[in-house]
Design a protein around this nucleic acid. Sequence first.
DNA 1: TTACTTATTGAACATCTGTTCATTAAAATC
DNA 2: GATTTTAATGAACAGATGTTCAATAAGTAA
Lengths: 193, 193
Amino acid sequence: MRTTDLRIIKTKQALHDALLTLLSQKPLEQISIAEICREAKVNRGTFYLHYEQKEGLFEEYFQEIMEDLYQSYEEPYRAVTTLDTNQLDPNTIRIFHHIERFKMFYRIVFSKNVPLTYYYMLFDGIYSLLKRDITSHHVHQMEDHISIDYYSAYQANAIIGLIIQWYRGDFSDSVTMLNQQLAAILKNVRSGG
Amino acid sequence: MRTTDLRIIKTKQALHDALLTLLSQKPLEQISIAEICREAKVNRGTFYLHYEQKEGLFEEYFQEIMEDLYQSYEEPYRAVTTLDTNQLDPNTIRIFHHIERFKMFYRIVFSKNVPLTYYYMLFDGIYSLLKRDITSHHVHQMEDHISIDYYSAYQANAIIGLIIQWYRGDFSDSVTMLNQQLAAILKNVRSGG
DNA sequence: TTACTTATTGAACATCTGTTCATTAAAATC
DNA sequence: GATTTTAATGAACAGATGTTCAATAAGTAA
């Protein structure tokens, strides 16, 4: 099962394409493994050679999306002009652009019947980005008995809380609005709300 | 389908009991609907008359757990003695006792392969408790352009972030530790960490 | 008790799941 | 190009899913 084998690459590509095609027609939970295999013209047994569930296949896409999240986070911050009130955590704030860009994807990730796995993938992504920053920039200012792991989990999931709220309003609020909300919350809480 | 019909009550009770029995033997994802029905001595078609998935059955238990959460939140705060550094949000802090009490349950709720539904049930529970408090106590001190909905979602999910971290360490940290972490984080962030 | 209402049953159906295995064929390696 | 390695196939399996339907029995109401 070396991943460089051309047969494996072809099979996976066919399954990827089939999943994308089907996802444009119906939600993930209504797509069966058998259906994906029919569409991909791949034997069903072959599917189980590479994945355990259709979710595993979906996860491979998610990895690519997470790559974009990391890059969004790294890239220099530009749209500061709209936010006059603060310059806090511009890094954090870029996350909403990423979500917006892949909102079709995140509509799946946040839907009720999907397994928690995807949630954790997003959580882990944001968590590790924040943890890196917290470790390097904030640790010297922090209460010394705060666990960095708990603190990072707290902050990462708080942001996802905003995203959940955003998702539940079908992403109808603008990215700017989300940025402002986060900025205002951080500012408010610091000044002792 | 009136819920007072004795036949319905008996059927649901049998399914509940069967689920509990099976949950003591294996995780939810390994339990099939057919298995539950065999154990409950209820026709499989009858199951579908009341629920769509086994998750729906599990949800009914969750409602009871949520009742306990609400009561935990309401009940007078007692264990303040361990927390000398602050008196902030004692209400919030009582949540960890509740999680601890039902940790067997929450091990299921936070496991990877379970649908997001349960997460949302917990989220909605904490969200509505916080929102009520935020609306009644904090609104006059808050930045006026902060949406209470976003703010509540932020705070509620932040707390769940701590719980996720706790869960991932198999709940080995003490409730006191969690209380201290939350208190320290809130204190830290307020003083401008 | 009787008559009415409706939840439950069992059977059947097409489809899906997860797994196994010998066979085939496509790659990698020499 | 020949040989070796191994991925993919097709067929078959027991069991699960989700749905339908007429028959039954358990409940409600008079």
